[in-house]
Structure formats: structure tokens, C-alpha cells
Amino acid sequence: MKLLIGNRNYSTWSLRPWLVLRHFEIPFTDEVLPLSGPGWRENLAERSPTGKVPVLIDGELVVPETIAIIEYLADRYPDKPIWPVDRADRARARAAAAEMHAGFSGLRTHAPMNLRASHPGKVDLDSVARDLKRLEALWGGMLERSGGPFLFGAFTAADAMYAPVATRIRTYDLPVTDRLAEYVEAIYGLPAFQEWLAEALKEPWIVDDDEIDVIQGRVPRGSLA
């Protein structure tokens, strides 16, 4: 089984299924398809049916799209608690995952994931205020119900879906309650996440579209390489 991923430093959608695979000790290999450089779009188009990452390859089966990959893994490995065991919690977890997939556009647009960076104060808080308020209600409610440290007690696919959001809170020092700050620390303390982070810090690539200084016009494209 192989997972095609983008740059670890930036690729939020690649991080999510990778965490599920690694945390639940499912054997796999990965291959990075850089999201910048000469011919990168053409390379993706040749390897991915959607021209995007991640893509899971299991024998002759090719599965694009993060949630589809996670659901495939849950079906293929029913003994792994990828989703919560309790039926009601599974429904809550899947609803939260779907909300992440479809929402939080403010955070995505104005606070891109960048694991190598530290940019406190660079995000206009008004642009992400609505998303942060929703996170307080969503994460706060699930953490209160479960007791933590993860959204449903133990780590599940729901946490994998929100791990990139946790990184944004740290990278941009976004204001959250102590309960949410503790959750961010739990994500960072996960051994699988630490492994991903260590590899991300070694990457040489710069993707201008995900650099806040480029997005906000502080520096010209190409000047960070």
C-alpha cells in the first residue's frame, strides 16, 4: 500500500490520512510529489486521477480524496478504531470530519498550514474570527464530553481531520481557550505527528501560495526560495 502525498510542510490533506495510517500501524509507504517546481502540475496529473494529493494505491485500486481514503482504511481494517467505537460518537466524528472538509474557509485562506514557520500576529483576526468561534463550540463540546485529550478520548480520524487546524493555531498564535490550547498540544505530542513534523522541517521546497508573507504582499513571489 502506498500513499502519494504533497510537501509535508504545507499539504494539509496529505497529513490527514498519513496520520491515520501511521498512528494505527497500518503498513504502507509514502511518496512525496512536490507542489512546486518545473512541471509539478503535469507530474501530479500523471500520478493522480484528480491531479491532486493525497492518493492511496492498494494493489490495482487507486483511491483519491482524503475522506474516501480514511473510509477505505476503516473498511479494510475493521479491527482498528479509526472511528469511535460508539455509534453515536461515530456519527458525531463523521459529521465533524465532513464539516472540516466543507468549511473553515477563513482559516484555509488566511492562515495556510506552514509547519516550518512562526508568524504570530500576521493573520487578521477578523478574517478567522468566525472559524475560531466555531472551533471553540465544536472542539470544546467534544472535549468536554470525552474528557480528552483527543476529541473522542483516544485518537481517531476526527483528530486527523483537524490536525492541520491545530498547526495553524500554533503557527499564527491564534487566540483560543486553554481547553483548545491543550488539544493543540495533544496533537503535537502524538508520535505520528512528531514523525511527520520532523520530516517537514527537513524539506527544501518553498510553495509561494502557502507563504503568508507572499499572500499578504510583504515579499514578492520567488524571493523566499
Rank of each mutant, 00 (worst) to 15 (best):
N9A: 11
W13K: 02
S14N: 08
P17G: 14
P17C: 14
W18Y: 07
L21F: 08
R22W: 06
I26Q: 04
I26V: 08
I26Y: 01
P34K: 10
S36F: 15
S36M: 15
P38W: 02
G39D: 10
W40V: 02
L44P: 04
A45V: 14
A45T: 14
R47I: 03
R47T: 04
T50G: 00
G51L: 15
K52C: 10
K52H: 09
V55Q: 01
V55E: 01
D58L: 02
G59L: 12
P64G: 07
P64Q: 08
E65H: 05
T66Y: 13
I67T: 08
I70G: 06
I70P: 01
K80Q: 11
K80T: 02
P81L: 05
I82L: 11
D86N: 13
A88W: 00
R92G: 04
A96C: 04
A98S: 04
M100W: 10
G106M: 03
M113T: 09
L115D: 00
L115K: 01
G121K: 03
L125W: 02
D126T: 08
D131E: 03
D131S: 03
L132D: 05
G140F: 09
L143R: 01
E144V: 06
S146R: 10
S146E: 12
G147W: 00
G147I: 00
G148V: 03
G148A: 07
G148E: 09
L151H: 11
F152V: 09
G153M: 07
F155S: 02
D159S: 04
P164H: 10
V165T: 12
V165R: 02
I169N: 13
R170E: 13
R170N: 04
T171S: 07
Y172S: 00
T177Y: 00
R179I: 09
A181S: 15
V184I: 01
Q194Y: 01
Q194W: 02
E195G: 03
E195Q: 05
W196P: 01
A200Y: 08
A200V: 07
P204C: 01
W205K: 14
I206Q: 14
I206F: 08
D208H: 04
D210G: 00
D213H: 08
R221L: 09
